[in-house]
Nucleic acid binder design. Structure first.
Lengths: 337, 337
DNA sequence: AATTTTTAGTTAATCGTTTAACCTAATCTA
DNA sequence: TAGATTAGGTTAAACGATTAACTAAAAATT
């Protein structure tokens, strides 16, 4: 079933069929009806490949993730991806997923879908090597970054309100009368963590609580559960009087929680803990974790919407969106005893 | 950068370039070198659309999921999908995902990627309306079913060893000296649940334990946590002496666990519970759930492998694979007191 | 030495669309 | 009423590959 068959059946030229499909005004209502009937009867649908070849539009969006984020099937980016998939449906896009090495290899290569011109735009989720960003730029495809903003150039991005999250988490603890509050982070040079810390700091300042360097543990290698455990160990050693912890993500929060328990304290009676992300198990842990919920699926969804706008408007103006966060109060925080 | 540019640069015809790309033996080593150099220098990659148009191969695989499985971002099928994505890389495939209504609508439509001839084959994950299966068949594309086997025709499928899982779960309980063992299921006409039950029954028989109808609760509407709770309620009412429960999946197992606790029993001291699936939270629940691990990512991975074989061998012989399961002993089961 | 076969390419048709350029008859315009 | 518009199409040239059919020169066979 090709456009030829439709043309024959409707007794018009293939050009007419194509024009009808694109709803061109030059075609009379009468002819439109004839053609549309033929299309319906033959159950005709234009071939993607043929269409793509001539129009240089594939109807596909590329989605780039770093290997570590994909491999460990980390729920966070998986959720972003699923959100994007979902919204892609509404815009009749298909998503092609690929992973790239997290650290720049000697031979940083572009994803195959870029080289083969198989996508109309690209969504990049999470922090990727800068080398890749500059390679992508050469291809002048619309790009939307998610939870990452490449330095040195205007870009379109969907970002998390990390500052607001850090602020709300901290203010929650302050409202519970905590004053000796610690921040647990991994690599503080990572923008997300940095901003969460900035929010933390801001909240302390706003309530005239002095910042204590002993309440600032950011020398772990990553933000894993193990690092959370180790960070909490250090914290309890140098500052045994701490009554509340804001961990820069849920994984570290769980690690810290484990350590605090192991050291004989109880959560939240002795020490309150707030996380960030609201991963699945925050709902089922013991105690259930108070945390900052990041609307992960919405991040992906917004990315696709933004991409759609970029593809529709020929004037590619870069634009950023920040999605809101929400404090989820559970049982790992309580009024200071 | 098209094949023309390469041809010009290498001073050969475009046909020669194409033949070199396909490693045709008719081309001399010398010319091959010339062409390959030109390809490298221009960083040329054939266009997917052009290639697809003439060769009728897209390099894409369609992945069909029912809406309910996708919407609730159910980890089970998500994991299968991710496993497929991962393996797709190794075979240079891209995966196009789509969802279909779980129950046959009046107007069951084929996925767009089928109509637009945008995939070389289709993976169907989970139970889909039969109407869809027959529609798909008309297009004579290779199809691989995952965790589902359509009745009435030979198909290629990747299946879970449900029987073996039911058997192992039950034998584990028997080895712990349990004799009064209940089966909790949802819709028993669903093949997976049926087979898990068959394994349960087989294990009882093999150890000469009579099957008691009071130990067979399968009248819940679904296999959710809530249904598990309700099923356990019924069970405890009609058979208070039960010492072990085999729930047909983890969700029901958690529901049952909650009910058992609420009724004042303790797990596993009073009642042992085994689940099926090994979802993420089975690792963190209290007590941690003994369950049958299903290698979810491997299911998706095998599906892609099978698809690859179907696409390579022109003789489309349907073939089924069963992936093994594994009993994961945790703390929800113990020796009968 | 004449004929056949092999080697190493090229030419040209084709895949299924889109769309600029063209055409013709009907309708306006002055 | 002649010339200019407009309406409603059609023709034909792309898009960027693949591949069957062809060709010319070199090598092998008789």
């Amino acid at each position: 079933m090709t456009i030829k068959d439709v043309a024959k059946k409707a007794q018009v030229s293939i050009a007419t069929v194509s024009l009808v499909i694109h709803n061109n005004k030059r075609i009379s209502e009468e002819t439109k009806l004839k053609v549309n009937n033929a299309i319906k009867e033959l159950n005709y649908h234009p071939s993607r490949s043929a269409r793509g070849l001539v129009s240089q539009k594939t109807g596909n969006i590329g989605f780039i993730l770093t290997e570590n984020h994909f491999l460990r099937s980390e729920p966070f980016y998986t959720q972003i991806f699923l959100g994007a998939e979902f919204e892609a449906h509404n815009h009749e896009f298909y998503i092609l997923l690929t992973t790239v090495p997290a650290i720049a290899k000697s031979k940083t290569k572009l994803p195959r879908f870029v080289l083969e011109k198989n996508v109309d735009g690209i969504i990049v989720a999470g922090t990727v090597p800068h080398k890749l960003v500059s390679l992508l730029d050469e291809h002048s495809l619309p790009i939307v970054y998610v939870d990452y903003y490449p330095e040195g150039k205007e870009s379109s991005a969907v970002l998390i309100d990390n500052f607001g999250g850090g602020k709300e988490a901290t203010e929650h603890l302050i409202q519970l009368h905590h004053r000796n509050i610690a921040f647990l982070g991994g690599d503080i040079t990572h923008p997300s963590i940095k901003h969460r810390f900035d929010g933390f700091k801001w909240a302390l300042d706003a309530h005239a609580i002095p910042f204590d360097n002993n309440n600032y543990i950011v020398d772990e290698v990553d933000t894993s559960r193990e690092s959370g455990y180790k960070a909490a160990e250090k914290l309890l050693k140098i500052n045994p009087g701490v009554t509340a912890i804001f961990a820069c993500n849920d994984a570290m929060a769980f690690g810290a929680m484990q350590c605090v328990k192991d050291e004989g304290y109880s959560v939240p009676q002795d020490i309150s803990i707030v996380g960030f992300d609201d991963v699945e198990i925050a709902r089922t842990s013991d105690p259930e974790l108070t945390t900052i919920a990041v609307p992960k699926q919405e991040l992906g969804c917004e990315a696709v919407r933004l991409m759609n706008r970029l593809l529709e408007s020929k004037t590619v103006t870069s634009h950023s969106v920040t999605v809101g966060i929400e404090l989820i109060k559970r049982n790992s925080t309580a009024v200071k005893q």
